[in-house]
Amino acid sequence: MKHQDVGETSPKRSVRQTTSSLLASSIPYVGMVAVLGVLVLIFGLMSRNFLSLTTLASLANQIPDLTVISVGMTLVLIVAGIDLSVGSVLALSSAVVGALMVDGGWPLWAAVPACLLAGAGCGCFNGVVSVYARIPSFIVTLGMLEIARGGAYLITDSRTKYIGSSVEWIGTPMPGLFVSPAFLLAVAIVVCGQLLLTRTVFGRYLVAIGTNAEAVRMAGIRSEPYAISVFAISGLLAGLGGVIQTSRLSSADPNAAVGLELAAIAACVIGGTSLAGGRGSIISTFFGVLMITVLQTGLAQVGASDPTKRIITGSVIVVAVLLDALRRNWGKAHD
């Protein structure tokens, strides 16, 4: 064993194990918290009542649907896919709830599983077709975007279904608390999603597949079931988003969530998820959702005109992504 140090003259360092400390793991979020803080501050200054508990409660009431969809989207983006169908699948699921409860007279507990099933089914279709037929998920889910929207119109006969109080409790703040069951559910999904991604074999494989699918294959791992599951999860969460939105609005609207997929993608990207796959964090995505929602409600609260709203929202997205890229490059240069 005389040659073990050939080529190394510096004192030998042993391989270090770093168990990431709480402080270190929260560094990526500092920037986003700061941007959020600045936004809240600006709106607080511009508006009479933005800095209030009711605003907080109302934000908590409005984010669950976008949150759960963005969790699914993050997972899909991590495996280097994309799911453009989530908005339409949300509408379809919402339509299923509406049709079953209003026309079919089903109780909520029976309509919800049916609706989640519809969402997961759409997701499965996306996954199976894109993985086994090797069609880019961009195309497959673009198709599903149309199919699911059409399905939503078909099921509701293009009519908004008013359901009323039987679904409201999901999206209504609970007595004593100022948050709704939907909000708690969404937070639970964020936490579970983050654990799934960072602490389980499943999550580890997703990151690996998104980084280099061929290397994963050569490591003797079949990636297809994982990729398909991810699309199914995204569909399922879109279905859940449908339930949540239906309860928030007490109605099932077949026109719901047009363009929501773009908001979800924006939330993921603001949170630093890479569209090329292999990198993403659910917690960061959640911050992205918060940022988008704070912008939306804040701008509405100060009464900004529609063009202003769009220009500001777009600019903030670009700035947030820029900051994230800068932070990443800085981190790389100091590795």
Binding site: V201, R204, Y205, V207, A208, T211, N212, E214, A215, V216, R217, M218, A219, G220, I221, G278, R279
Partner: peptide, 18 residues
């Protein structure tokens, strides 16, 4: 096809023994 270059030593080492 041998390594996941952007991922950690740990992830690469344990990839097929999870």
């Amino acid at each position: 096809n041998g390594l996941l270059l952007s991922l950690s030593l740990l992830i690469n080492t344990t990839l097929c023994s999870l």
